[in-house]
Design a protein around this nucleic acid. Structure first.
Length: 450
RNA sequence: GGUCCCAUCGUCCAGCGGUCUAGGACAUCGCCCUUUCAAGGCGGCGACACGGGUUCGAACCCCGUUGGGACCGCCA
């Protein structure tokens, strides 16, 4: 606990790449714990690698976090009582701590570098919130490939602190109470604990999160496709769905609940309930979660999510009243698992052009077209072009088919194709009702059905 | 090679010594619904890695084996 007893956690990415799935997962669990406990979530930028760190990546990471709805309480952009929040701006602290260690002979100078003496014969206990007790002999905490003890570099020759040193100094001075990070850091922790001890500082709690693996069970990387969370956005995944799916990797709110939002997660989250087993990133499940969120959205929110994809497809959705496109998407029901799919599958509601390029009505040449013309003729005789209602259209179609010995399917499928250019769509009378008699006539006459 | 971690259906989780002939979700297969496809409903297939202990009793505790993984940079 911090000075005031409040939990303080942090997400500390290095701005050497975009926010990827693994980082997002770590950030998410930190966020959950902070929100659950009413504590603070700190964003700290670990830019001590001057070669690879860029301001652009720093922005991208923050944008990624915002996209996921992970807001932070302290950070480089908004300040806080423990700033600055970029390691490159905290050099004095590292220098000071390093010199203290040199004075107490726990470290020594090597040129411009400062090196920590790794002690022997000490037991290091890492009492991890998730993994439990892990014991490591101090002389095994930092070794060369041949197993010999290797002293730990604190300050590099370029004057910058190393990761293992900077984390300790910052987590301590920022009052971090619990370090939540990926399991790949377990091996670093004993070294850090040694540094805490030498500095006479109390260690924070540690909670290591299971890794996220690709379908080949290897640590997730660019090889597995998407590297940035924005690629998921581009593919048509909703931020709420990615949040939900990521939260499910290593945790459940319990009670069999799998589809949930940030509020519920923040209320139910329990750090000690997080799984130890690495989790495979399963796209099928992500698709399902996304579909569920898509179904649960309000018509207006769904429309807004789909519009950019319609725009990408060159479809001029602005021509229609919002109510029309919203109703169209409502008719789409559970069709489409990503926003992108939903936009593609519903293109014909927006424009007739894609229909023309997909369907040529050649299979209705011959006697069947005569039947269709008779039906649509009767339909327009009865309804004209206004006041089209799905239920009435369907009732008429069923009656007409019964009287003329034609199966409904023989009418419905060509009609579906003429209106949508697809064999798959919502109910054809619902579509016709929404599009209206005028638009339907244009499409039907194009195929000479009317 | 060394250190450390992990081990329940293909995948994600539940199970935290008896209520487990192991539960849910995704995926998959079948049926129902039906103007198509989704959605929805119903059902099938499908796992405690193996071997020793401890215990009246083990998926749950201990040990070993096997199999995965992470780490061993003046990267973070």
């Amino acid at each position: 606990m911090g000075a005031d007893g409040k939990v303080r956690v942090r997400f500390a990415p290095s701005p050497t790449g975009a926010l990827h799935i693994g980082g997002a997962h770590t950030a998410l669990f930190n966020w959950l714990w902070a929100r659950r406990t009413g504590g603070s979530f700190i964003l700290r930028i670990e830019d001590t690698d001057r070669e690879r760190s860029t301001a652009e990546y720093e922005r991208t990471i923050m944008d990624g976090m915002r996209w996921l709805g992970l807001d932070w309480d302290e950070g480089p952009d908004k300040g806080g009582d423990h700033g600055p929040y970029r390691q490159s701006e905290r050099m004095d602290g590292y220098r000071e701590a390093a010199m203290a260690l040199v004075r107490s002979d726990r470290a020594y100078m090597d040129g411009r570098a400062v090196i920590f003496r790794v002690p022997s014969g000490e037991n290091i206990l890492l009492d991890d919130v998730i993994y439990g007790a892990i014991n490591v002999a101090s002389e095994k905490s930092s070794v060369n490939q041949d197993g010999s003890v290797k002293d730990i570099v604190l300050i590099k020759s370029d004057g910058m602190p190393t990761y293992n040193f900077a984390v300790v100094v910052d987590d301590h001075s920022m009052g971090v109470t619990c370090v939540i990070r990926g399991e790949d850091h377990i091996a670093n922790t004993p070294k850090q604990i040694l540094i805490y001890r030498a500095l006479g500082w109390e260690t924070p709690q540690f909670a290591h999160l299971p890794m996220i693996l690709g379908s080949d069970k290897k640590k997730l990387s660019k090889r597995h496709g998407a590297t940035s969370v924005f690629e998921y956005s581009d593919m048509g995944y909703l931020p709420d769905a990615v949040f939900n799916f990521l939260a499910l990797l290593g945790w459940t709110p319990g009670g069999g609940v799998e589809i949930f939002g940030r509020e519920l997660a923040a209320r139910a989250f329990e750090l000690s309930n997080v799984t130890k087993k690495p989790a495979v990133f399963d796209t099928d499940k992500l698709n399902y979660v996304n579909q569920e969120h898509l179904k649960a959205m309000s018509p207006a929110a769904r429309r807004e999510a789909v519009e950019p994809f319609w725009r990408d497809l060159g479809l001029r959705y602005e021509r229609h009243p919002r109510e029309y496109t919203e109703n169209a998407l409502t008719l789409m029901g559970g069709r489409g698992r990503t926003t992108r799919e939903l936009a593609e599958y519903s293109d014909y509601f927006v424009d007739f052009e894609p229909v023309k390029s997909r369907y040529d009505a050649s299979e209705t040449d011959g006697p069947h077209r005569g039947t269709l013309r008779e039906f649509f003729g009767a339909l327009y005789d009865k309804f004209g072009t206004s006041g089209w209602e799905a239920a009435k259209l369907e009732e008429f179609a069923r009656e007409w088919c019964g009287e003329n010995g034609v199966s409904l399917k023989e009418i419905a499928m060509p009609m579906r194709l003429a209106l949508s250019g697809r064999k798959v769509s919502p109910g054809v009378f619902e579509m016709a009702g929404l599009m209206g008699g005028e638009e339907c006539r244009a499409r039907l006459s194009y195929y000479q059905f009317v």
